[in-house]
Each structure stands twice: as C-alpha cells, then as structure tokens.
Design a protein around this nucleic acid. Sequence first.
DNA 1: TGAATATATGAACAGGTATTCATATATTAC
DNA 2: GTAATATATGAATACCTGTTCATATATTCA
Lengths: 96, 96
Amino acid sequence: MKLTEPKARKLAELFSALSDASRIRIIAQLMGGEMSVRALADGLGMTESAVSHQLRGLRQMHLVRARKAGRQVFYSIDDDHVSRLFTLGLDHVQHG
Amino acid sequence: MKLTEPKARKLAELFSALSDASRIRIIAQLMGGEMSVRALADGLGMTESAVSHQLRGLRQMHLVRARKAGRQVFYSIDDDHVSRLFTLGLDHVQHG
DNA sequence: TGAATATATGAACAGGTATTCATATATTAC
DNA sequence: GTAATATATGAATACCTGTTCATATATTCA
C-alpha cells in the first residue's frame, strides 16, 4: 500500500494519542458517557491538571469533545471511529 | 467502561507500536504482502538497522511476523486486527 | 464587589524512544 | 575453510512526552 509521508505522520499522531495508559483509561471512562474533568480525575486518581493536559491532546486529535455547562466542562467520545478503534485494540490485546 | 490498569497499559503499548511514522510506513508497505528487511529499507529510504529495530518492536506486539527463508527474513502483517486498525485509523484521519 | 470552584496552561524536570554506528550472528557460495 | 550477504543487536545520543507545580482564566454565589 502506498502512503504519503504526511499521511503516515497524521496516522502516527492519531495512534500516539492512544499510546498512553492514562489516556486509555480516560477514554475507557468516557465510553460510559460524558464526564466532567473532576469526575475523570477522581475516578482515575489523577490530578485535574494532568487530566486536563491529556484531554487537550485528545481534543486536538478529535478523539474527545467538550461541552461547557456553567463552570464545568463535560467530555465525551468524539465519534464512532474512536470507540471502534478502542474496542478493536482491546480485542487484539485480549485474544492476541 | 471499566478497565484494569494492566489492560490499559497493554492497550497503550499496542497503540504505541503504531505511534511512529516509520512504523506506520512499514505497515503500509506490508499491506501489499510480505517483504524482506532490505526491500522495506530500500522502499522507505531507511537503513536496514533502523528498520530491523522497528520490526523487532512490531514483532513483540504481534503486529507483524517473520518468515525466514535462507538468509533473508520476510515480514508480513500478523493478523487481521492489524489491517483493520490501520484502515480504521486511516479513515479517521481522512474524513476526521 | 469578593470568595470559591472548575478548568486550562506554561515551565521544568524525569523518563522514554528512534536513529546511528559499530559489531555480532547466520546463511550461502566458492 | 574464507568471503560475501542479510539481519540483528548493544550503546550512545538527541529528541520527545507526561507529570507536577504554580498560576491564570472563567463562572457562580453571596
């Protein structure tokens, strides 16, 4: 298969966004529905700062999206591709 | 969704294996069928050493597998999950 | 207005990673 | 056996990344 360098980089960036255990756990939580930053941080035992930094990257890659409600920001899985990538990957590590 | 720490790490490792442009290009080449290390290196403009180092990681993650034939080693995509992850990711970056 | 809460962000440091270079192993041909 | 070829690997280096800490912004409440 032929793949231009810029596309290879883009694709690598996408997978990079999923290449950290903290981010994976964030996504896993969001699979159950939208959550605030604090709720994510509490559920994961991370600081809000760390979570917020990670969410930024996930947002930029369009893996999650934010909905602002008052002073809270609720995050959710951005689109279906993301959940499919997640579950497909999980499949591979489970019976791989 | 609930996800144990070890599983989150495993999943992150899987995506890490795909989180580099060189490795993505290696996989892209292998989508067309098995290739020797030298053929990969030539096709990608990388040194055989660099390719070999990367193939090692991909092998350990069961993303590619090796077939030895004489003094050459032919690499190919390990299983269907891998090609599906690849094309699903490509989908996301293309109409994302 | 001021205090409190929720999130975001910049800088800095620690740990990880991709490549290069040199060298090792393995296989074939002579 | 030696020479040549294909691949693998260890060490070193340069770059990248995740977290923490301090601070900033934004929103609600009194």
